[in-house]
Design a protein around this nucleic acid. Structure first.
Lengths: 226, 226
DNA sequence: TAAAGAAAAATTGCATACAGTTTTTATGTT
DNA sequence: AACATAAAAACTGTATGCAATTTTTCTTTA
């Protein structure tokens, strides 16, 4: 998989080097990746269309930021989309995929006990990816992944911030319950648990931002949550 | 609303001048819109990211085409997304929006009786747009509109082809039933009717393609349905 | 010291040019 | 006439340059 320029720039956002509100300077990016501004601009436009960054005429593109209301709307939408994936996956996943899911849950338990946050983030990604594939619907998979991509900076924060989401146990248990329902072919129940899981994630995130923002010393990092 | 280049090119697809599988020649488009290739390329990349067209390295971009399976997956996904919009709109629309919906349904009945297909296509667009707004969720609205955009060439065909979807009465009646449920605040029922409505649309579309493709004289227009 | 305005620097938007591929047309062979 | 091959044309990918706009810095004034 030869990392495209588009992916390289997206990675800057995904790994947190660029945060919501940060500007994307075409010249710096061009220097950094050893190309001219032309392909950089094309990549930025693509990321703009996928909603990861915001394009403003005549002004630098910035990493997209969500205010409180938008964040809660995004999570509501994502909750429903992921719930749909889960309910379809419960009925449509094949044996190989079910085996993979079981293996992932075992590995994930291990990781959550060791409190390995980067690994947990990775497994969260894989867990949802398995359900996106298991739903056997390419359009739905595209939609689900785009939605996740858009809120990437926020969901990553959720996993990485020590103290919030104090241990990784609860999200892991939620995943485990969802996996059980999926493997048992109980679509309705899987969907219900998924909605709950995503709703919980939003609450943790809101909690986190409330705490970090109310500290008046914090220099109100631009773009965090407006 | 100063039509952007991106919108101008999208319009070529939406109004049917460019069909699925057709190539987008950068030079011709540049000449046509009186600009250089640079902004054309940027617009094409954006449309590629939104999924209306397909970008192939070193080869011309083409209007995206769906095979049978992809089309049915797209409609399944769209059905669920639209159903979600409808069920939320039933609970969240305000009085002004409900009035607009009632007005639209009256106008739509008129149009369907006169068998005015272009107008019916327009009203279909507005009907779903009202529900997207009524759901009070910007992320969901974005997702719903992107999904609709992707299958635009196919849903437009559905409305325009005489003989198929023989009269406009049935889709109008379906819209009316959905609107009634929404206005009565019955989200579950609105969702159910919406799913049915979209499923019907897929069936009509498949019917249409089956008939047009089985005629062996038809030169197998590239990109229609593979 | 703070605010307002002007000058300088930085940055985006777009046209153009050219190298490298792909596509089309022309040519030759069985 | 059909197929394979070669030459020509067309097209995409990217670098570069310049005009227009935005952002930053510097200067002036209250």
């Amino acid at each position: 998989m030869p990392h495209t320029l588009r992916q390289k720039i997206a990675d800057l956002v995904i790994n947190g080097e660029l945060k919501p509100g940060d500007r994307l300077d075409e010249h710096s990016l061009a220097d950094r990746f050893g190309v001219s501004r032309t392909p950089i601009r094309e990549a930025i436009r693509q990321l703009g269309a996928s909603g990861l960054i915001e394009i403003r005429p005549r002004r630098s593109a910035v990493v997209r930021s969500f205010d409180r209301a938008e964040l809660s709307e995004a999570f509501e939408a994502m909750g429903e989309i992921e719930a749909l994936c889960a309910s379809l996956a419960a009925v449509r996943m094949n044996e190989a995929e079910r085996l993979k899911l079981r293996a992932l849950m075992a590995a994930s338990q291990d990781v959550s006990l060791r409190n390995d946050r980067p690994a947990a983030l990775e497994m969260d990604f894989e867990f949802h990816g398995l359900l996106h594939d298991g739903a056997r619907n390419r359009m739905l998979k595209t939609v689900a992944e785009e939605t996740r991509l858009r809120i990437t900076p926020y969901s990553a924060a959720l996993f990485m911030m020590e103290g919030y989401n104090a241990d990784l146990e609860r999200p892991h248990q939620q995943h485990a319950a969802i996996a059980d329902a999926v493997l048992a072919g109980q679509g309705k129940e899987a969907a219900r648990l998924m909605r709950e899981h995503i709703a919980q994630a939003l609450i943790s995130l809101q909690q986190f931002f409330e705490d970090t923002q109310s500290r008046s010393d914090a220099p109100k990092v631009k773009g965090e949550v407006r």
